[in-house]
């Protein structure tokens, strides 16, 4: 593996067991690579498996989840092969931290925000309580919260401030990778922009890599270098953000981009995709998108398309990629 690869997910399969010994195929053969100092995004609709992917990387899966195959290499170590104790001590929070979905509600309401940050530091590092508190105050200052606020409880802070406190906490141990699952969904747009500015600034300062997971295409595309488009537990397309936006090759990505209005472009009709995402207890045969795809042909229902390279950085899983490419882009 090249020196600069930070995260390398290879052929990951993760299923949830449900009543009747049946399996929900939440993540099915997903591969993804993230370089050091690079931001990667995962976009997809609800239930496509994007949050499950984050939980798999952090090894925080619920008890009914099972990894059925694949590897998650983090800086060369396969996280899936390590005992929980090792993950807890050496990886989670310390090297990989997370900003949760609706982070403002992920804070413990019974502890002051200063104490919560201290706790994270004290568990992992051998420092005095005073030193931890001093660092907590510093972190809060860094994210633009008055250090005196460390003594406040979450309910005393606004939504944007709680989100900032969460970011401060995720940075407490100076991690290499921050996974942000819907980091700004509950925030208003101005506060969202402030939080994004902050994330970008801190990232430059500390050399952190971000893995952003969201349904919000505009949000993800405005900050990441490369993006994976997930649908029904699979990655449909993977490549540099600009290419995915301007010259997507997968029909799902193509129609998804048409359904996203851009405030800075001219008025146009909004696109959509008929039907609804499939039930992953019993996913469609062949390509999982074929029942909703207007370009589907016989082979799409029979054979699963492999991930094909358009060039070394851009790959797509579609049987008709060649034809569609000439149809859309000449």
């Amino acid at each position: 593996m090249p020196q600069n690869t930070l995260l390398d997910v290879k052929g990951l399969k993760m299923y949830y067991q449900v009543v009747g010994r049946r399996w929900v195929k939440a993540i099915d053969n997903v591969s993804l690579k993230q370089l050091k100092n690079e931001n990667v995004g995962i976009v997809g609709e609800s239930g496509c498996g994007k949050s499950s992917l984050a939980l798999s990387i952090l090894r925080l899966l619920p008890s009914n989840a099972r990894i059925m195959g694949g590897e998650i290499l983090f800086d060369g170590t396969n996280l899936l092969g390590l005992p929980e104790k090792d993950i807890r001590r050496n990886f989670r929070w310390k090297r990989i931290s997370m900003i949760w979905q609706g982070a403002m509600n992920a804070l413990n309401p019974m502890l002051t925000i200063g104490n919560q940050i201290c706790e994270a530091i004290l568990v992992h590092e051998d420092v005095s309580k005073e030193e931890a508190w001093r660092r907590a105050e510093e972190l809060l200052k860094l994210v633009g919260i008055e250090p005196s606020r460390a003594k406040h409880y979450p309910f005393e802070l606004s939504g944007g401030m709680k989100q900032r406190a969460m970011i401060a906490m995720s940075l407490a141990l100076n991690p290499d990778l921050v996974i942000a699952d819907e980091p700004t969904t509950a925030l208003d747009v101005i506060v969202q922009a402030q939080v994004l500015d902050l994330i970008k600034k801190l990232q430059k300062e500390f050399g952190i890599s971000l893995l952003i997971i969201s349904h919000d295409v505009s949000l993800v595309f405005s900050i990441v270098d490369r993006v994976a488009v997930m649908y029904a537990g699979k990655i449909m397309e993977w490549g540099p953000t600009s290419e995915i936006y301007h010259s997507s090759m997968h029909p799902y990505t193509h129609f998804l981009m048409e359904s996203v209005p851009n405030i800075r472009s001219k008025k146009r009709p909004i696109g959509f995709i008929g039907g609804a995402p499939p039930n992953l207890l019993n996913p469609p045969s062949g390509c999982r998108f074929h029942p909703r795809c207007p370009y589907a042909v016989d082979v799409c229902a029979k054979e699963e398309p492999p991930m094909m390279f358009i060039w070394s950085e851009h790959s797509v899983a579609c049987h008709r990629e060649d034809e569609l490419r000439s149809k859309w882009y000449g």
């Binding site: 208003d188 101005i190 922009a193 402030q194 994004l196 505009s218 900050i223 990441v224």
Partner: peptide, 19 residues
């Protein structure tokens, strides 16, 4: 403050502070 899905359009600076 509204992000654009087009990554080639840079994010605009948000001039106002607070909430």
């Amino acid at each position: 403050a509204v992000p654009s899905p087009d990554p080639d359009e840079s994010m605009r600076e948000v001039k106002i502070k607070g909430d």
